[in-house]
Design a binder for these strands. Structure first.
Length: 559
RNA sequence: UGGGGCGUAGCCAAGUGGUAAGGCAUCGGGUUUUGAUCCCGUGUACCGCAGGUUCGAAUCCUGCCGCCCCAGCCA
């Protein structure tokens, strides 16, 4: 089966549930906590949850899991909504919050207490930890575990009423302190937090814990398949315990899949935050960040991200996906959608000694070699041109078919030129090339069908537009930066290079967010934050595949 | 030394007892005024290891090994 036809194990389950009539319609949810920005790992979950319902005519909720007011903020709520929408998904009227259900959740807690399945504990956090035991030793019961239902009901009501300070009491499920599954050792259900909540304000001073709130929210929304990552597999017995105890009419099934890890990147919210706080990157939307906001600003198309997670697949196996897979998805998408332009990143002046000084010719350039319907544009060609420094070598290795002393090369859409002289500065650096052009070789004229091996790009000096171009590279030097003792030690010092580039004049009118291919260099997009008409700022999204660079690298490695 | 999960080519991943799909990468070759794109070709994967069942096992059984997760009043 090809990647588009394959049915992963979750889609298989869903397919079976539909076919057997267990469910008529699939309902899922994407439940982020609004305590940070979404990253590439979330893209996977978003595409899965919204994808399976889009494919089967189901519904998906965007639900904010906002049960911890100390860490959450409306700025994240807004950013998350923007990111999900940008990725191409629509929750229609199904935008909810776990906090929308606080009253109902509280009633469930009261029920649990009433049936003797939960109790108010007055041990301190430290004591609770001690009583919990360890991975190999069972825990022991809290002395408060045997409180009467009446006392528990009274205490819980007073917790809600605000009679106690933070940490004084906690509501716990009464399950099994000796369970080998730590999640079942009387997990906390509610804690006291005298804090203003980003969505419910000061309505509450007790807040439900994740397991309790999440399970019941799923049930209340009639979620059929609650899809989450592998680390929650141990929580499933607790998830089911809540459902058993409270016997909801709608019983969601939790299914776990493995996270998507990207090589050379980090997806820990804490570490991502550190990168921002320490000024290592410029913000959550720094184009080097693996956040959705960062990738969007970098110029990665949403469709490429969706394609990427499809390629990665849905399984339970730990995966570390190569950066190249993501980059290829981006190239594939941009390759067909982006118009071609010319720009020189590291300019080297070329003077065509036999070209008239006062003439400017207009040459015609295709906007896309495979899509003639995208038309052409006219480029000014004159006596002095910028070419890429890399496109000239004084002492080239074999198979270098760009410019070299005495050698010929074609200027894209222009003429064939020959390098006659190399001008250097006092330091011995090449600062200018004196070349001659062959007037019979103008592109498209057909007056000469001479062939030369190389074609290079160029920009007319008199017409070029100055721009700041930002060249990005991976943020880390190792494939698994998350396993480093200190991620600072594996930061890539060269993750950002800024160059002063020369652009063909047509680029001057581009608007923020627009994407083009600079021929022979890569895909670039106009920065959405810092670009201005008078000062173009451009991001390199990804380079073109470069088999010459690969050869050079191999040659280097072989000495 | 407790519990839960996972182990198919460099990276992903199909496969659910009948003799190993596909994608990406790699390496060849062709086309090409982007060393891009496109096109063609290219991999002996001892299916983690060792036993066993079977005419036949990646698929079933047993034992072992390796990796990941769990001891928040975080999610």
């Amino acid at each position: 089966m090809s990647e588009t036809e394959s049915r992963d194990f979750i889609r298989q389950i869903i397919h079976d549930d539909l076919e057997s009539g267990k469910h008529e319609q699939i309902v899922t949810r994407f439940p982020p906590e609004p305590n940070g920005y979404l990253h590439i790992g979330h893209v996977m979950s978003i595409c899965l949850n919204f994808g399976v319902t889009a494919e089967t005519g189901g519904r998906t909720y965007l639900r904010f899991d906002d049960t911890n007011p100390g860490k959450e903020s409306p700025v994240y709520v807004e950013a998350i909504e923007h990111d999900v929408r940008w990725l191409g998904f629509d929750w229609e009227d199904r935008l909810t919050h776990a906090s929308d259900y606080f009253e109902s959740l509280y009633e469930s807690a009261v029920s649990l207490v009433a049936m003797g399945s939960a109790y108010v504990d007055s041990l301190s956090a430290d004591e609770i930890r001690e009583y919990r035991g360890t991975l190999t030793e069972p825990g022991k019961n809290s002395p408060h575990r045997s409180r009467s239902v009446e006392e528990n009901l009274d205490l819980l009501a007073r917790m809600r009423a605000g009679e106690f300070a933070d940490g004084e009491h906690v509501l716990r499920a009464k399950i099994d302190m000796s369970s080998p599954n730590m999640n079942l050792r009387d997990p906390a259900l509610y804690r006291i937090r005298h804090l203003t909540h980003q969505h419910t304000g000061d309505d509450w001073c007790i807040y439900p814990m994740y397991d309790f709130a999440h399970t019941l929210s799923d049930a209340l929304e009639h979620i059929t398949h609650s899809l989450c990552t592998l680390e929650f597999e141990d929580h499933r017995p607790l998830y089911n315990w809540f459902l058993d105890q409270l016997k909801p009419e709608h019983r969601p099934r939790q299914i776990e899949f493995s996270r998507l890890n990207l090589a050379y990147a980090i997806t820990s919210k804490r570490k991502l935050n550190a990168l921002v706080e320490e000024g290592i990157v410029e913000g959550w939307n720094d184009p080097r960040m693996p956040t959705i906001a960062g990738m969007r600003r970098r110029g990665y198309p949403a469709a490429a991200l969706r394609h990427f997670v499809t390629r990665a697949g849905v399984t339970k196996k730990d995966k570390l996906i190569e950066m190249g897979v993501l980059e290829n998805c981006v190239r594939e998408n941009l390759g067909v959608t982006s118009q071609r332009r010319m720009a020189v990143l590291r300019p080297l002046r070329v003077v065509l000694t036999n070209y008239p000084e006062d003439i400017v010719e207009m040459v015609t350039a295709m906007n896309h070699p495979a899509r003639p319907e995208l038309g052409t544009r006219e480029l000014p060609f004159s006596r002095e041109l910028w070419i890429e420094q890399d496109d000239f070598m004084e002492e080239p290795p074999r198979k270098f078919f760009r410019l070299k002393p005495g050698g010929e090369v074609r200027l894209r859409f222009g003429y064939i030129i020959r390098c006659d002289d190399v001008i250097k500065n006092e330091a011995g650096e090449v600062i200018e090339l004196r070349c001659s052009y062959d007037a019979d070789t103008r592109s498209g004229t057909g007056s000469s069908d001479r062939k030369v091996k190389g074609t290079i790009h160029w920009v007319s000096c008199a017409h070029g537009v100055d721009a700041e171009v930002r060249l990005y590279d991976r943020l880390f030097t190792v494939a698994k930066p998350n396993t480093a003792d200190d991620f600072h030690a594996v930061l890539n010092a060269d993750s950002l290079q800024v160059v002063e580039a020369k652009l063909e004049p047509s680029l001057a009118s581009m608007k923020a967010g627009e994407t083009v291919q600079f021929e022979r260099l890569g895909y670039f997009c106009i920065d959405s934050e810092e670009h201005s008409g008078s000062r173009p700022v451009i991001n390199r999204i990804v380079t073109l595949r470069d088999s010459w660079a690969r050869l050079e690298q191999q040659a280097m490695q072989q000495g």
